[in-house]
């Protein structure tokens, strides 16, 4: 049954991206929207970015209140969370995109960079799990 929810959720994510593109003319990339606020490069569209992020936070909050929360199964290892967060923050800004920008929005317009980035971060994620879970056993 999980795959059906995956598909439904995916359709909603894509619809969000479609609304953002056809409505505002922008590419819906989470790391770009957040990063532009952090480094000031998105100053001119600050309000739109904040309102977008408010939607991303608020709707799951409402859904989890009505239907019950999703268990995140997130590690409680603080150093690991800090290292992973740093890598994700630095990496997505260097690469100019993450799973939403390069993945969903990039690949759906057949962008070569979208496919390349997605292939590399999935491969890196797989290797990360291989090393840290199966070889070193730390996650």
């Amino acid at each position: 049954m999980d795959w059906i929810w995956g598909l439904i959720g995916g359709l909603l994510i894509g619809t969000g991206g479609a609304v953002y593109l056809l409505g505002n003319g922008w590419i819906m990339g989470a790391s770009g929207i957040i990063g532009g606020l952090v480094d000031g490069s998105g100053r001119s569209t600050r309000k739109e970015r904040l309102v977008f992020l408010a939607g991303v936070i608020a709707i799951p909050a409402v859904l989890s209140l009505i239907f019950g929360r999703v268990d995140t199964n997130l590690t409680a290892n603080w150093p690991l969370l800090l290292i992973a967060g740093l890598l994700v923050g630095v990496g997505t800004r260097i690469a100019n995109g993450c799973t939403s920008g390069h993945g969903v929005c990039g690949m759906s317009r057949l962008s070569l960079r979208g496919f390349a980035a997605t292939a590399v971060y999935i491969l890196a994620g797989g290797i990360s799990l291989l090393i840290f879970r199966h070889v070193l056993g730390v996650i």
Binding site: N73, A84, L86, V88, V90, V120
Partner: peptide, 22 residues
């Protein structure tokens, strides 16, 4: 290089804990 190296960093962090920016 930016696209590749950045995606390597991102993917590594993503795999470590299973979270990304969205």
């Amino acid at each position: 290089m930016r696209l590749v190296l950045g995606s390597v960093f991102f993917g590594t962090g993503w795999g470590l804990v299973g979270l990304c920016p969205g």
